[in-house]
């Protein structure tokens, strides 16, 4: 199991964000994408998730271009964006249940337990705090499991206790042979992590 990006180029509004960007990620590895605001962290993650088409370059899953089997690839990852993708009028459980059904899995109660959400599982998301919403969103990683996690700022608005909890989940996932692509400002102090710095020679900032 491997994810490879080759010579990705990203242009937004006629502006070059990055070019010739490549990396490769194997089972059990974490890639930490670093960079300033506007360096293209979110764009890269959206590109890997297939939401944004690269101007040129290729993304490969298990050595084959994802274009060959886009549907098959879509089942292999879970994308967690900036926004929580939760409906305020539904409870945490209902939200998770919908997304679990939508991706054809059903581990909702386990997910609620792992992220310490059982007590508030049946209150509407609309009255939750930002951190609680974030945890509910992250719980989708457990309720709809997938080998590759694509996480855009997963720990923003979490307090230290829950950052530790999230790190444990992440380490468990990697230990079980999973992979993660992570964009954060904060250093998570993970023991073994590969780094991809978008401010480096591939980005526009050093040209």
């Amino acid at each position: 199991m491997s994810l490879t990006a080759i010579n990705l180029r990203c242009i937004r509004q006629d502006r070059l964000i990055f070019t010739d960007l490549g990396f490769s990620l194997k089972a059990g590895e974490i890639l930490w994408v670093q960079g300033r605001n506007g360096a293209g962290k979110s764009s890269l993650l959206r590109m890997i998730a297939g939401l944004l088409k690269p101007v040129s370059g290729e993304i490969q899953w298990k050595g084959a271009s994802v274009k060959e089997d886009p549907d098959g690839y879509q089942d292999q990852f879970r994308y967690i964006g900036h926004q929580e993708a939760l409906k305020p009028v539904l409870s945490a459980r209902e939200n998770l249940q919908f997304w679990a059904d939508f991706s054809g899995s059903h581990n909702v109660s386990a997910a609620l337990k792992e992220f310490d959400l059982e007590k508030i599982a049946d209150s509407p998301v609309g009255i939750m705090s930002a951190g609680q919403k974030k945890r509910t969103n992250l719980a989708r990683l457990i309720s709809s499991p997938a080998p590759l996690w694509i996480l855009d700022e997963p720990i923003s608005s979490l307090d230290t206790h829950y950052i530790e909890l999230f790190k444990k989940q992440l380490e468990k996932h990697v230990a079980a042979g999973g992979m993660a692509l992570l964009a954060t400002h904060q250093d998570l102090n993970l023991p073994s992590v590969h780094k991809l710095d978008l401010d480096g020679p591939r980005g526009r900032n050093n040209e």
């Binding site: 959206r46 998730a49 879509q74 994308y79 964006g81 926004q83 409906k87 997304w99 991706s103």
Partner: peptide, 14 residues
């Protein structure tokens, strides 16, 4: 679109 659900809907197997 605003709450990010659209991204997830686009990524589903449907």
């Amino acid at each position: 679109f605003e709450d990010g659900s659209l991204d997830q809907l686009m990524l589903g197997s449907l």
